[in-house]
Design a protein around this nucleic acid. Structure first.
Length: 265
DNA sequence: ATCTATTCCTGGCTGC
DNA sequence: TGCAGCCAGGAATAGA
């Protein structure tokens, strides 16, 4: 499941290879992923130079000459692969002057957009979880009556966190997933902010988490799953106190926490 | 504003 | 071995 650290890893893997290169041709095989006309979209890309590759939240944004933007969201099972052979799950191919970039996506929850304006779904994003300052973060939580886990998953509030990293950050902050955001004081807000930053930075250093089949553009798996302390550890002992990790459903997501360490509501 | 349920998808797993 | 049924979840959407 690609979240911020996985997307960041992919962007870092492909940036140097792509910037300055030309898109010679593009092909799209799925109108679930590309909700537009494939030949027309390919035509808009042909001959463009890649000026920059950026990440915003979980989006990959490829800036092209002439103000065109290629925006990719990996959904649940999307992958960008460099110089790989296409397979049954290949949904898009970009032929560059120096190699081939593939978009593979088993479940097709991912989306590809090509347009000159910032796509609506990118414009709606809150501040990036990796770049947000503690002051901004404090402000985001203020006057929120909702519970902390759904709030952190809300991309319009904070961009980039997904289910795994929210659970891991809440554990490290020793905060219960159902804690009301507005009732956090300065101390607990600081603890949560620090936990999010720590989890994201360590996960990026590890090249992300490979839970099901995530790999970066060179096919390398991440290793942060070895550092998971609660995610997918239901029934296993808490690494801090030994109590069995519990699982419940919050915001329709599997939510993993230690009932002893994460008591504060 | 905030909540819940539903939809989109397919591979992998469970249980008969 | 086969197969039905269920589960995983990011994000949009509808409705309460």
């Amino acid at each position: 499941m690609p979240e911020l650290p996985e997307v960041e890893t992919i962007v870092r893997t492909v940036t140097q290879r792509l910037v300055g290169r030309e898109i010679r041709d593009a092909r799209f095989y799925s109108t679930l992923v590309l909700r537009a006309d494939p030949p027309e979209t390919a035509k808009r890309l042909r001959g463009r130079l890649i000026e920059a590759v950026r990440r915003r939240g979980k989006f990959i944004i490829v800036e092209l000459s002439g103000g065109m933007q290629l925006t990719i969201h990996l959904g649940m099972t999307g992958k960008l692969l460099w110089n790989c052979a296409p397979g049954v799950h290949t949904r898009a191919v970009w032929e560059l002057d120096c190699g081939t970039l593939l978009y593979d996506d088993i479940r097709q929850f991912g989306r590809i957009e090509v347009c000159e304006e910032v796509p609506e779904r990118v414009a709606r994003l809150g501040p990036d979880a990796l770049l947000v300052t503690e002051e901004e973060f404090t402000h985001l939580l203020r006057n929120r009556r909702g519970r902390i886990k759904p709030l952190l998953l809300n991309q319009a509030v904070l961009g980039g966190l997904g289910n795994i990293y929210v659970d891991e950050a809440l554990f490290r902050a020793r905060m219960h997933p159902l804690t009301t955001a507005a009732q956090l004081g300065r101390e607990r807000t600081h603890r949560l902010y620090a936990a999010i930053q720590e989890v994201l930075r360590t996960a990026i250093e590890c090249g992300g988490s490979s839970i099901s089949d995530y790999v970066d553009a060179d096919g390398r798996a991440g290793s942060f799953q070895a550092h998971h302390q609660v995610y997918a550890r239901e029934g296993e002992p808490c690494l801090r106190c030994g109590a069995p990790i519990r699982r419940m459903v919050v915001a329709q997501r599997g939510t993993h926490y230690c009932p002893r360490c994460q008591r504060s509501r």
